[in-house]
């Protein structure tokens, strides 16, 4: 099984520094969005990207989650030596090929993993924000959630506490599926129907990634750094007999790493 991929990032129109980092190698893809307005945010995301880029191939969801734990420790360790990094942290959304027709994904924070699967777009990851928690508890509606005062307040981030809780998914690698990993600077600026359309009609993952980012930083938008990594499972969906109808095989919320 082969994965095709492409990535794009842009500082946006209003920010001076791009605190988004991403990783795109043949078997592992990630987006990290630094948290905090000071240098520390970019640094935390940078540490995450560096570790993931150089990590050995992961062969299971557990290994992937352990890798997030490694990142968490590294950021905390760096902050110990540099007071400017105190309480800086990063979101982290990762997709990895873990063997045969299996993918693993994990997420901490409010970067997102979307899947365009059999023509329909769905958000696989769950945002770790207070407003999303309130929405899932039925206290506020989806419409209220996007306006909510705490919509940016993360309940989890990497590099904040000694133990980080990671959401993990086991995913089927079904030919033709396109995945999007993106920072909130993209998902906030491009409505989901547009994301779906771009993913569906772009020539290839690189084309999709750059179109999505361009869309996010169009005039009048682009209020934040925007990053997209698009991954496509090579192969014709019709010819792929593996477990039809299933994309998400398992979801393990809040695994300690």
């Amino acid at each position: 099984m082969r994965l095709d991929y492409g990535a794009a990032t842009h500082v946006g129109l209003r920010r001076r520094e791009n605190q988004d980092r991403h990783v795109a190698r043949s078997d592992l893809f990630a987006v990290a969005d630094g948290v905090g307005s000071h240098r520390g945010g970019g640094t935390a995301a940078g540490i995450a990207a560096e570790i993931l880029a150089e990590a050995e191939r992961v062969e299971s969801l557990d290994q992937l989650i352990a890798l997030v734990g490694t990142v968490n420790e590294a950021i905390l360790e760096a902050a110990k030596d540099d007071p400017r990094l105190f309480e800086t942290s990063t979101t982290l959304c990762v997709l990895a090929h873990v063997g045969r027709s299996r993918l693993a994904a994990c997420n901490v924070g409010d970067s997102r993993l979307y899947a365009l699967y059999r023509g329909g777009l769905s958000q696989v990851s769950v945002d770790h924000t207070i407003s999303e928690n309130l929405r899932r508890d039925g206290i506020i509606s989806a419409a209220e959630a996007v306006e909510h005062v705490d919509r940016h307040t993360l309940t989890r981030a990497v590099g904040l506490e000694p133990r980080v809780y990671v959401d993990g998914w086991e995913l089927a690698a079904v030919g033709g599926t396109r995945f999007l990993l993106c920072s909130d600077g993209l998902s906030n600026e491009v409505p989901e129907p547009e994301i779906a359309e771009i993913l569906r009609f772009a020539d290839d993952p690189s084309d999709a990634a750059s179109r999505l980012v361009q869309r996010a930083v169009r005039p009048g938008r682009g209020r934040d750094n925007a990053t997209a990594v698009v991954v496509e499972v090579a192969g014709d969906p019709e010819l792929d007999p593996s477990r039809p109808g299933q994309l998400v095989l398992g979801f393990h919320p809040a695994v300690a790493a």
Binding site: R14, D33, V35, G36, S37, E87, T88, S89, T91, G109, D110, H128, I130, A142, A143, A145, V146, E147, R151, H152, T153, L154, T155, R156, A157, L160, D184, G185, S187, N188, E189, V190, P191, E192, R223, D224
Partner: peptide
Amino acid sequence: GETGADQTESDPG
């Protein structure tokens, strides 16, 4: 229509 919020930053929890 719900994602056009003026979100521009992420705050740590």
